[in-house]
């Protein structure tokens, strides 16, 4: 009940959203987990991008660069997986 009220009152209720309990007095781990969540959710990136105004040409260039990088990474990942593949029919092709 309390939680639902809190959620209705605020989209990001404090001490519910982005909160991690500290286990065994291990503050470092909790901080790291919070940071990892922030990074994964893209909150840190958005924070960084909205510090200063980004001119439209910069946005365009950034988006294009991200596209290129994504394509390159995808292909490279596939290549690496191909080279590293296991359980081959012939384990060492061409060596007899």
């Amino acid at each position: 009940m309390f939680l639902t009220l809190k959620l209705l009152a605020n989209r990001h209720p404090s001490f519910i959203a982005r909160t991690v309990f500290v286990k065994n007095n291990n503050v470092d781990d909790a901080c790291r987990l919070v940071n990892r969540i922030l990074g994964k959710e893209g909150i840190l990136e958005q924070y960084r991008l909205t510090r200063y105004y980004e001119k439209p040409f910069q946005t365009r260039r950034r988006v294009n660069h991200e596209k290129c990088k994504a394509i390159y990474n995808e292909d490279m990942e596939r290549k690496i997986q191909f080279v590293l593949r296991k359980n081959r029919h012939e384990p060492f092709p061409g060596c007899h």
């Binding site: 001490f15 991690v20 500290v22 007095n25 503050v27 909790a30 901080c31 919070v34 909150i43």
Partner: peptide, 14 residues
């Protein structure tokens, strides 16, 4: 001090 929880409250807008 004994810290129970860590919360992030960074102001971020989309």
């Amino acid at each position: 001090l004994q810290i129970v929880s860590v919360t992030d409250n960074t102001r971020v807008s989309w």
